[in-house]
Simulated assay, not measured.
Amino acid sequence: MNITLFYHSILSDWNHGNAHFLRGVVRELEERGHQVKVYEPKDGWSLQNLIEGYGEGKLEELKTYYPNVSTNFYTLDTLDLDKELKGADLVLVHEWSEHELVKRVGEHSKESDYKLLFHDTHHRAITERESMAKYDLSNYDGVLAFGQVIRDLYLKEGWTEKAWTWHEAADTSVFYPHERKPYEGDLVWIGNWGDEERTAELHEFLINPVKELGLKAKIYGVRYPEHARKALADAGIEYGGWLPNYKAAEEFAKHKVTVHVPRRPYVEALPGIPTIRPFEAMACGIPLISSPWDDAENLFTPGEDFLVARTGEEMKKHLQTILSDADKAKELAEHGLQTINNRHTCAHRVDELEKVCEELGIDSSKIYLVQKEQVLHEE
């Protein structure tokens, strides 16, 4: 297939978690023989923050992990959809895109043969419903939603007639168990502070347990206000600032345990959506302990793939267990890793996307290129 993707950025993951999944999906699609073009807005805020804070050298570093990563910059006033979408079989437009772009691509699709999907990977459909309702999806063939509750909402609100659940997953070309050298610390956490959406939770399930247990810990992320940095320092936690996502696996290998602290909207209104961080951690073979969230879609087996701490005190107990019992830590890490490899890689998600394409009526000879080539080779 010729596939065109409109996203906020594939180059930058500065406060932009969608780049994690997008990179893995694009690589998997290309490995299967599909032709993929990614478009992102010129001067997008994530890429600009990355360059201003860390320099353009980070873009060269990215290519050492993703050699074939490339993008096309656009501005709304110069974007020629006739030219850019010529020959496309499938077009995906991400929910962080401008309302005007979403509408224009939809209108363009009426006179074209490609199939058009809207991809939603955020909680705004719940928390900012009025803004999301303004997206004109009337000409879209459907919605890919990163959780069942989001999918159901699109259908209930009448924003689309077709929707599929398409969870994020781990890019196992980068997220896999790296060689463990002498540990540099006990605990590592990678995540942004997040608009005060989980301040109390971060104190209860991360900062306070680390302080009270006297652990050697390091935290990476952006948008940490002064009071947050002060709390980390008071707990003896090293703050590492922004960490390129492709380096996270290397950091996991230097520590004994990590935790997952979901933002409040995911806990309260979006059951079944863990966000991408737990997928990536388990893919790296590091023991994971999570604060409470409802695995309503049975993605994992809580207690076997990761431990669940319902309170700060329980988090402390779980941390003590993992740090003192090497066999238990290994068992937990291996179970989580196996679940990822069996069910939750970008390859699995591309399998799901190909089935959606078939359901939409795209010619199967365009969809299943790898399988077709394998059959010819075997014959």
Rank of each mutant, 00 (worst) to 15 (best):
N2T: 08
T4V: 15
W14N: 13
H20G: 07
G24Y: 09
R32T: 11
R32Y: 08
Q35R: 09
K37V: 14
L50H: 09
Y54R: 03
E61G: 03
T64H: 08
Y65S: 12
Y66V: 07
S70Q: 06
T78K: 10
L79M: 05
D82V: 05
K83M: 12
A88W: 09
E95Y: 14
E111A: 02
D113R: 00
L116S: 06
L117F: 04
I126E: 14
E130N: 11
A133L: 09
L137D: 02
S138L: 12
Y140E: 02
L155H: 06
W159E: 10
T160G: 12
T160M: 11
T165G: 09
E168C: 11
Y176L: 06
E179R: 06
V188R: 09
I190M: 11
W193T: 13
G194F: 13
E196T: 09
R198M: 11
R198F: 04
E201N: 01
F205D: 02
F205G: 02
I207P: 00
G214I: 02
V222Y: 04
A235M: 03
G236Q: 03
I237G: 04
G240L: 04
P244C: 05
N245H: 13
V257E: 08
V261K: 11
E268S: 13
A269I: 06
I276V: 07
F279R: 07
I286H: 00
P292W: 09
W293Y: 13
N298A: 05
F300V: 03
E304S: 01
F306E: 00
H318N: 08
H318V: 00
Q320C: 05
I340P: 02
I340S: 03
R343Y: 10
V350M: 07
E354I: 04
K355F: 06
E358A: 10
E359Q: 13
E359I: 09
Q374H: 15
